[in-house]
Amino acid sequence: MDILNALTAFLNFIVVPGLAYGSQLALGALGITLIFGVLRFSNFAHGDTMAFGTAFVILFTWWFQSMGITAGPLPTALLALPFGILATIAMMLATDRVVYRYYRQVRAKPIILVIVSTGVMFVMNGLVRMIIGTSEQNFTDGARMMLNPQDFKTWTGLAEPLAIKTTQAISLAAAVICCALLFWFLQKTRTGKSMRAYSDNEDLALLSGISPERVVMITWIIAGTLATIAGTLYGLDKSYRGVVYFSLLMPMFAAAIVGGLGSPLGAVVGSFIVAFSELIVTSAWKKILGYLVPPEWLGDGLYQALSTDYKVAVSFGILIIVLLFRPQGIYGGK
């Protein structure tokens, strides 16, 4: 019984949140890795792209809510999502046209593009602040819990509850669907293959008649779509503040680099590595351990390796380990 309680607590505090957070990271990291593969730079504006897309989703959500349109037990934000995605795609394509395209034409060094992307980050961040402000915005509605902790306790008779929030379930489902679609697109369609070819060998892709502008456009569209979904899910799960998305940059970069920059599969695997590492290191294990050993052995400590404030240190640590021992990442990126 105690083993079951420990397992339940482990599921409740580590596995469920880890899957949800990992899914959100994965959708963001996929965008980073795709942009890296095709445009060959680390996009520092990606966090704020997520914030931008989410801001529009929130505006549409409020509008729908004010008209009485809801999605029943699901968050209304899901209905607003397509509109947010369209706004983000428009923004991405406009940014590419006004900003990035020039640097492609003059074949600027990647580091210049990194700096340019920080400029774009500012502009986007400024826009987000002007559109929706800096304070916390709540836009979650619908059923809060998919698996109610009280129900779980009554059903199983365990002392330890297990809760699954609707937003957590949606995050995982969205990540699975998006990844399946994306991998199908990249592996099976001619356009997807041409994107991989361009990412693999730009010059040869040109010789083969693949249009770089088209590949770049599709990349922005996919990255913008994924970023909006990722940002919205993160916002639904943890509540929205425009500024927190900047701090998602570090875990997303770490995830993309762990997997191998440019490798979509790597980005997904890397995201779950980062998410679970963060939770394992910053969770208090006292409760789980309490079921496995006599509680009096444990004393007063929380059995928490690092306080949650140091989340960033975990992704940073993973990044450092990868840079030291395997800079090309698990799946051999560039």
Binding site: S42, I111, D309, Y310, V312, L319
Partner: peptide
């Protein structure tokens, strides 16, 4: 750690270390 690799890595690693210092 970060020099001698792709130049983006320095940018990303320094972003992390700065955040940790401030934290």
């Amino acid at each position: 750690i970060a020099l001698g690799l792709r130049e983006d890595y320095l940018a990303i690693a320094t972003l992390g270390i700065a955040e940790i210092i401030v934290t």
